[in-house]
């Protein structure tokens, strides 16, 4: 899947609109074949980053390159390398799906004979062949999203940038969308996907970037990001039997401190600890349980979820914003 060759390289990218800082020195590198889940609260700077990458906006400072092409200087090259699907579909009235794709194919100077074949391929790839003769505006939102992806694929781009592709889709359409995106990544394309549907995103992405308040708060694989952002980790103590579970819970509270949240699931024979305690404390707890003869089958860390990481990043950004506002007021 992902190779080590970097395709998208962003270095200290900033974008200011007057005094408002939409992006603040954002840097990240993405390898070929990666699927980046680019998430953040509304107004965090996701769309600004995307618009700079596809050449719709110019950065105030910093650089962004796609397959070596500069997103400001080599705009023509970047347009051929990137397939972009904005959050707004952009349909034209009275045009059938095939005509719609034919127009964009012609816009990318694909010769007519090649274009016809290419349209068939992308329609098949997105499971949209059956809607080729339908009028674009008569399609449902989910169908339009598929046509949108087909459009981005027409010129066979290396990088696909999809802004909220799963927005407004029903569960079935979302599953189909997920399958399409995985299929595209398996072809070696690099995908940058923004979404607010985090469980969905965590299923397909091998990289996650969380942006909030214009800054990149975390970037890496899902476990790396959740570890980085979560202040508490979840430890599961799996026992062979459900005996003495309350005693184990009391012992955990004693070792990990009262601020830790301890829950008991007798049906699963599991004691769960959400704690900010360090590795040393956890090791001591395990040692104590074994020494007291408790039959511990597993002592494991549960990977944090994206939602938690997202909330954590958003809170940090909010706190920063509040602090900045306060310091401005004090200065006045």
């Amino acid at each position: 899947m992902a190779s080590q060759e970097p395709v998208v390289v962003i270095r200290d990218l900033s974008k200011h609109y007057g005094e408002f800082v939409a992006l603040d020195r954002l840097s990240l590198t993405l390898e070929r074949g990666s699927i980046l889940g680019f998430i953040g609260p509304n107004g965090a700077g996701k769309t600004t980053t995307i618009r700079i990458l596809v050449g719709l906006a110019r950065p105030t400072s910093g650089t962004a390159t796609i397959a070596g092409a500069d997103c400001v200087k080599d705009l023509h090259k970047v347009r051929k390398l990137v397939g972009y699907m904005p959050d707004k579909f952009g349909s034209y009235d009275n045009m059938r799906v095939r005509e719609y794709l034919d127009f964009f194919g012609a816009a990318f100077s694909i010769p007519r004979s090649v274009r016809r074949k290419r349209i068939e391929e992308v329609l098949e790839l997105t499971n949209a062949t059956w809607m080729q003769d339908r009028f674009v505006e008569s399609l449902s939102h989910g169908m339009q999203q598929r046509v949108g992806i087909a459009r981005t694929l027409l010129h066979n781009p290396e990088v696909l940038i999809l802004d909220e592709p799963a927005n407004g889709l029903d569960p079935e359409a979302r599953i189909e969308m997920r399958e399409i995106l995985l299929r595209l990544a398996s072809e070696g394309r690099t995908l940058i996907v923004t979404s607010h549907i985090l469980p969905e995103l965590s299923r397909i992405c091998n990289k996650v970037g969380i942006v909030a308040g214009g800054k990149l708060r975390a970037f890496g694989t899902l476990p790396e990001v959740t570890r980085e952002l979560s202040q508490k980790q979840t430890i599961e103590i799996q026992l062979l039997t459900s005996e003495n579970m309350q005693a184990i819970a009391d012992k955990a509270t004693q070792f990990l401190g009262p601020e830790s949240e301890i829950t008991v699931s007798a049906a699963e024979s599991i004691v769960r600890c959400r704690t900010a305690a360090n590795e040393e404390k956890l090791a001591q707890l395990l040692q104590k349980l074994i020494s007291e003869g408790h039959r511990v089958a597993q002592f494991r860390e549960v990977a944090g979820d994206l939602e938690e990481a997202f909330v954590s990043a958003a809170r940090v950004a909010d706190a920063e914003r509040a602090a900045a506002k306060k310091s401005q007021e004090v200065a006045r």
Partner: peptide, 9 residues
């Protein structure tokens, strides 16, 4: 549609 036109060559 304008943004779509802008990202074409």
């Amino acid at each position: 549609g304008w943004n779509l036109l802008r990202v074409t060559p």
